[in-house]
Design a protein around this nucleic acid. Structure first.
Length: 310
DNA sequence: AAGACGAAAGTGGTTGA
DNA sequence: TCAACAACTTTCGTCTT
């Protein structure tokens, strides 16, 4: 077993063909090659270099082979050159004082260039704001990336001119949420940003038009998973609610109505049908509509879908 | 007493002239 | 730009469990 295993390890130090000890490990091609005679001694070797994923700061120091993946949520996509602040060369030796002065000048300019003009500063600010809002709303990675992408497009097309950074960031997030089918209401976004609901809506319509984003009207079904988990409803209720909504959509019962209201009513009916009853008030609370709306929608639903609540 | 129901008046946003 | 309009909310009183 040990013999077999050594096949996979890289503990060869001598070429079996010519006896030379000058071996080259080529991680790109995953081979160990004799520098002298060119024999491929091992192939498919495993790159044992550190990985970029790190779970604490200690690991972060070790796992530096590849750098972070490129991301849109950092203003330069994480692709900048960083000059280490330690005065060591690549072997860990001290750098002599003359070189040190040179390098510190390099560092200075690198910093200045990284966030150079107004656009860059704007982006950096906006992206950190978006990050703040996203974490408040508990948005997933891909929504954040999507929002960042929208914002970049908006910047490229000079759409920010005359508009507040906060307004556009909030609008970008709203749009990204809808695009990714994890809708947040305007109210929710307004409550964690300094922008009013009205302005976010206006900003959203604006960038949606200018960037030519086609987002279908919000589907009430998209709200079901989030609302029902907030109400601690089980999966059967969710399925039931989605069923109801599909039928409702088919007869056009949802058009013109606020999607949250319809979702709320469907959830209410489903919760009753599945014997997991929640009060109208509870549902109204998490869906941010009033009990009255829940009632109105739910009356329409049972009437037109011929549902019977026992 | 809590929840469900419904009427009536008020609010903010869309639409069409 | 303004008025009409539908959806939604607020408020409050009544009915049901």
């Amino acid at each position: 077993m040990l013999d077999n295993e050594s096949d996979y390890l890289e503990n060869v130090n001598m070429c079996p063909e010519c006896g030379s000890s000058k071996l080259v490990k080529d991680y790109q091609r995953a081979e160990i090659i004799c520098f002298n005679c060119g024999l491929v001694i091992r192939s498919k070797i495993i790159d044992s270099g550190p990985e970029w994923r790190a779970f604490d700061s200690e690991q972060a120091e070790k796992r530096v082979r590849a750098g972070s993946p490129s991301t849109l949520t950092i203003h330069d996509k994480g692709l900048t050159t960083m000059i280490d602040w330690r005065n060591k060369d690549s072997f860990g030796n001290d750098i002599n004082p003359k070189k040190r002065a040179q390098i510190s000048r390099l560092r200075k300019w690198q910093r200045r260039i990284r966030i150079s003009d107004a656009t860059e500063r704007n982006l950096a600010l906006a992206l950190s704001e978006m990050d703040r809002i996203s974490s408040h709303l508990g948005l997933s990675r891909n929504v954040r990336e999507a929002a960042a992408m929208l914002y970049r497009q908006a910047v490229n097309q000079r759409l920010i001119r005359g508009r507040s950074i906060e307004g556009v960031t909030a609008a970008a997030i709203y749009a990204a949420c809808r695009k990714c089918k994890v809708p947040r209401t305007l109210d929710e976004i307004a409550s964690v940003s300094q922008v009013s609901k009205k302005d976010i809506g206006r900003g959203y319509r604006f960038i949606a038009r200018e960037l030519d984003i086609k987002v279908p009207p919000t589907n009430p079904i998209d709200y079901i998973p989030r609302f029902s988990s907030e109400l601690k409803l089980n999966g059967n209720v969710q399925t039931r609610a989605i069923e109801i909504l599909k039928r409702a959509i088919n007869i056009g019962l949802t058009s013109g109505r606020g999607p949250t209201g319809v979702a709320a009513a469907a959830l209410y009916i489903a919760s009753v049908l599945e014997n997991e009853r929640r009060t109208q008030r509870d549902i109204a609370e998490v869906t941010h509509v009033t009990e009255v709306t829940v009632r109105n929608r739910y009356k329409e639903l049972i009437e037109l879908l011929k549902l019977d609540i026992t």
